[in-house]
Design a protein around this nucleic acid. Structure first.
Lengths: 137, 137
DNA sequence: AAGCTAATACGAAATGGTTCGTGGAGTGTG
DNA sequence: CACACTCCACGAACCATTTCGTATTAGCTT
C-alpha cells in the first residue's frame, strides 16, 4: 500500500476538527477554527478542496453544502506521521523518543503511566519469544 | 527563551551529518550525503549558508574551506521538534505518543525497555508526591 | 606571474503551501 | 418574479523551501 500523504500543518488543523466533530460542512469547520484564530471562509474551503484532491478527505455533494469527512482515522494518521517523524529525527529508534516524551513539561498522569507500564511489561515478555509476531487489537 | 527555529527536512539531514561527524566542511557534508542520495555540491553549500543566516549552524571562516558546526545539540533540537510535533499531532499529550511509539514496527530492545521502565517508576513516584493520591495498587 | 583548481557568493527557477478575492450558481422569501 | 443570502469554483498573490548554474575569489604549482 502506498504511504498516505502527510498532512501539512494547516491540513492537520482541519482534520482535527473533522475527527472531533464528525462529518462537517465548510461552515462548521470554519466556525470551529475561528474560535482560536482568524481565517477566511474561502481559505478553509480551498483547503478542503485541495485535501479532497489529495485524498485526505472525502465529500458528499448531495446537499447544497458539501459534507466533508476524513478518509483515514486519527490513529492511522498519527501512526503514519509518527513513523515519518521518528525516522527523520530519531533515526527510526523509538526508545529515545519515548524517553524524551516522558520527560516533557507536561508529564503523563498516573493512569497513563499505568498504561505505559503494562505495555512495557507485555513487550518485555514478547521480547523473549521473538518469533511470534502478534498484531495488536 | 525564544523557540529555536525548526529545521526543515533537508536542513535536518545536514544537521545529522554534523552531529555525527563533528565540525565539517561543505565537502565533507556533501560526500556523506551523497552516499545515500545525489545532491549537487552547491546545493549543500547554499543550504549551509541559509542555515548560518538562520542561526542553525555556525561557521569558522579562517581556513579556505569554511568549517560548519551545529549551534544546538541533537538533544535540544529533538526536544524542540518533539514538543512541536506532540502539540500538533497529539494535542500536547505525551502518553498516546509513547504508546504508539512503543508499538511501532521496530520495537525497543530489552535494555531500552529497562530504561523506559525505570523512568516510568521514577515519574510515578514523583506524581504520587505532588498529588496526595497515595494508592499504590 | 600565469594558470589550474577548489572554494565561496550570488541569483534565479521550480515547487509547494497558504491565504483570500471575485464571480457564478443554487435556494428560499417577500 | 426579484432580491438577498449562502455556497462552491477558480485563479492569483505571496512566501518559504529546495535545487542548481554561473560568477568570483583565493590558493597552489610551475
Amino acid at each position: 500500500m502506498a504511504t498516505l500523504p502527510q498532512p501539512t500543518a494547516s491540513e492537520l488543523k482541519i482534520l482535527r476538527v473533522l475527527w472531533r466533530q464528525g462529518p462537517s460542512t465548510v461552515r462548521d469547520v470554519h466556525q470551529q477554527i475561528n474560535r482560536n484564530e482568524q481565517l477566511s471562509y474561502t481559505t478553509v474551503l480551498k483547503q478542503l478542496q485541495i485535501m479532497t484532491s489529495k485524498g485526505l478527505v472525502e465529500r458528499d455533494t448531495e446537499a447544497r453544502a458539501h459534507v466533508y469527512k476524513p478518509v483515514h482515522s486519527e490513529l492511522q494518521t498519527q501512526r503514519e506521521m509518527l513513523g515519518d517523524f521518528m525516522s527523520r529525527v530519531y533515526d527510526g529508534s523509538p526508545s529515545r523518543l519515548v524517553m524524551q516524551a516522558l520527560g516533557m513539561s507536561r508529564p503523563a498522569s498516573a493512569d497513563e503511566l499505568d498504561e505505559i507500564d503494562s505495555l512495557v511489561r507485555k513487550l518485555r515478555r514478547q521480547s523473549g519469544s521473538e518469533e511470534q509476531g502478534q498484531d495488536d487489537a
